[in-house]
Design a binder for these strands. Structure first.
Length: 132
RNA sequence: CGAGCCGGACGGGCGGCCGCGUCGGGCGGGGUGACCCGCCCGCCGAGGAAAGUCCGGACUCCACAGGGCAGGGUGGUGGGUAACGCCCACCCGGGGUGACCCGCGGGACAGUGCCACAGAGAACAGACCGCCCGUCCGGACGGUCACCGACCGUCCGGACGGGCAAGGGUGAAACGGUGGUGUAAGAGACCACCAGCGUGCCGGGUGACCGGUGCGGCUCGGUAAACCCCACCCGGAGCAAGGCCAGACAGGGAGCGUUCGAGGGCUGCCCGCCCGAGCUCCCGGGUAGGCCGCUGGAGGGCGCCGGUGACGGCGUCCCGAGAUGGAUGGCCGCCGCCGAUCCCGGGUGACCGGGACCGGCACAGGAUCCGGCUUACAGUCCGGCUCGUCCG
């Protein structure tokens, strides 16, 4: 995600799951009439898109860049974990600057499984645990 | 060997797997086209401070970048440089035994302001204690008169009048210092030397200034990161500069004005100059996308020459980030350095050598590009120099 409008819509209109180091927002299309899936071409639907928010409260530039790179690494395979057209925002809390790699990964994956499990289209809850 | 001063360099290394960004090549796709997208392969991919954004430039636009006032900056001298508030050398002042270090280092007889507390007195200053002289009072001792008492002399204490500023004490600072003459006691009151101020001459230096010598009045505080004065410098904005393209919409109303000039620009004002037919406000609507600028430059390494040096000249070789929600992340192996624990060997011992395992390895991330400054920083290496001790 690149535009600030998309970030605002995802953070304000989406579901939220908070952990110590990160907060995850996910806006899934179809939940309301205003959030129709964006279309590219006549039939294809855009895949889920992800954005990151790392504020100055996390730390100086070196720390912020490292946190953002780690979050990007974690979220590499998340596009097929959310329905097409979803807007997903992964935001870092201030403790993320001092967290280790495993702490950050576990928090982010925990938040993701919480949101993506409840949004499985078939309603099945056992098949959503695809972590690892 | 110990303590220390100055300068310079580095700031983890090698390798494997997955992933990311630019560029080049290949294949495929979209589009009339400019161009864009996907996959594969290859090369490359953060710093000495990339930081703070404090100075100086290059570059871009403002027509030229004019004069005065205001404003800002700099402040020993000479040089280096594209330029600087930077660097080098020297001068002066201060500190250190020394190598060296520190200095926002013009002007306080152009003017104005301010100097707290303490202290007697703080800027044409002042007399608390004190020193000296005189008068008076009291006391002690001695002398004279045969005694009480009186008078005279010496000493002590007090009051009053006057002289003094040497000594004590206060302070960051007390209107020169030392010695002498002088005096009732004293004082640049006078004398010698010294310090300081002003001024003349001689010598050295491009210069700041230094050395020597004569004269003068005798001493004349500090603060200009207080106003101010003097000299010199400074046009404004900044890569979101600026340029090209694509795309979209929808206009309506009011006011001022078209050479008798609205409105702009040149800095804040004035003068002077230039552009000039649109400009301002209200209501309503649309867009905020792409490309260029964009990285080879006052660039770096080495050698020679000039210069005390900063630096300059010549020759030769090398150049391998250009993102735009902003590319460096994840996992692993070996080595290096530091710290704790344990084991083995040597030694009476401080300790030395070897091994195992655990933990740690700083400060910090480009955004137009350079030259500086400042600040942060685990640790390592190199060179030069000083002082002390011991040995020869």
């Amino acid at each position: 995600m690149r535009s600030s409008g998309e970030f605002t819509r995802a953070v304000r209109g989406g579901r939220r799951a908070g952990r110590r180091t990160v907060v995850l927002h996910a806006l899934v299309p179809g939940s309301s009439a205003a959030d129709r899936p964006e279309t590219i071409g006549p039939t294809a639907v855009a895949p889920a898109r992800i954005g990151f928010v790392v504020s100055r409260a996390v730390g100086p530039a070196v720390v912020r860049n490292r946190v953002k790179r780690r979050l990007r690494h974690i979220a590499r395979d998340w596009t097929d974990q959310f329905p097409a057209g979803s807007l997903v925002v992964l935001r870092a809390n201030p403790p993320a600057g001092g967290a280790t790699w495993t702490e950050l990964r576990d928090d982010a994956e925990s938040a993701r499984s919480r949101l993506s499990r409840q949004r499985t289209p078939t309603g099945g809850r056992s098949s959503a645990r695809t972590r690892g």
